[in-house]
Simulated scan of single mutants.
Amino acid sequence: MPKVSKVQRLVVVGLLAAVCLGAAETAPQEERARQLGANAAFELQRVLKSELTSAIQAGGPGQAIRVCAQKALLLTQGIPRLMDVPSMTVKRTSLRWRNEMNRPDAMEAKVLHEMEARAQAQEPLEAVLRLHNKTYHYFEPIRTTGLCLTCHGLEEKMPENVRQALDTLYPGDRARGYAAGEFRGVIHVSIPQAVVAEP
């Protein structure tokens, strides 16, 4: 067995220390990114629920669909400003998207397929955090609730005016036919690494 010189031992120890220190530095960043992503996802769901509930109370489900079509994307894009993190981006996406602006990209589609497989296997769904190109990507799974089913539920149970509004506003709609508690999609929060890098 070849002898290892003192210099070689020091290099190995140094490399191990660097790896450990790097991991130690990354862990707080990941935790901050995860918390920021969770807060953004919560805030988006709160804002959307408030808007849709008000719309339903004011004009019924048909009005809620119009609010979704006209305001949901703007409300989603406004979350970073609301949270005072303008370099962050927020998006809702699904394998069965309704608005073409919410079509998943390659990374989102991969995560969505992974979560869909877990949901089909009746395994618990948890938020996912990934680091790519110096940006943390936080994915919060969305499941359908009673309010969602107003416009995303079984078509035969929808009022005629709701179906007509959906057909008019979303001719390529893929987002109907869900039951309560089904996996619907994700909220994707993109956070530049620099945002969470400060000690």
Rank of each mutant, 00 (worst) to 15 (best):
M1I: 03
M1H: 07
K3E: 15
S5V: 06
K6D: 13
V7M: 06
V7K: 12
Q8Y: 09
L10G: 12
V12E: 09
V19W: 12
L21M: 08
G22Q: 05
G22A: 00
G22P: 15
A24F: 05
E25Y: 08
T26H: 08
T26W: 09
P28W: 08
P28K: 08
E31A: 09
R32K: 15
R32F: 00
R32Y: 02
R34S: 03
Q35A: 15
L36E: 09
L36G: 03
G37Q: 03
A38Q: 08
N39K: 07
N39H: 10
R46K: 11
V47G: 02
E51T: 01
L52K: 04
T53K: 14
S54D: 15
I56N: 05
Q57S: 11
A58K: 13
G59S: 14
G59Y: 13
Q63Y: 07
I65N: 02
R66C: 05
A69R: 06
K71M: 12
L75C: 03
P80M: 14
R81V: 04
D84A: 14
D84Y: 04
V85M: 10
V85N: 07
P86A: 11
M88L: 09
T89F: 11
T89G: 11
K91I: 03
S94K: 05
L95D: 10
R96H: 11
W97K: 07
W97S: 08
W97A: 14
W97Q: 11
R98V: 08
D105P: 04
D105F: 14
A106R: 13
E108G: 10
E108F: 08
A109G: 11
K110H: 14
K110W: 12
V111P: 02
V111T: 11
H113I: 07
E114D: 14
M115F: 13
E116W: 10
Q120E: 15
Q122P: 00
E123T: 04
P124E: 09
E126T: 10
A127C: 02
V128F: 08
V128T: 12
R130S: 03
L131H: 00
N133K: 14
K134P: 04
K134I: 01
H137F: 03
F139T: 01
P141Y: 00
I142R: 03
L147D: 04
L147E: 03
L149Q: 12
L149M: 10
C151E: 09
E155A: 12
K157I: 00
K157C: 01
M158F: 13
P159F: 06
P159H: 05
E160P: 00
R163V: 02
A165M: 09
A165S: 12
L166S: 04
D167M: 10
P171G: 11
G172K: 11
G172Y: 09
D173F: 10
R174G: 06
R176W: 11
Y178L: 01
A180L: 15
A180D: 09
G181E: 12
G181M: 15
G181L: 15
E182K: 09
G185R: 06
G185F: 06
V186C: 04
V186Q: 05
I187F: 06
V189M: 06
A194T: 01
V196Y: 14
E198Q: 13
E198C: 07
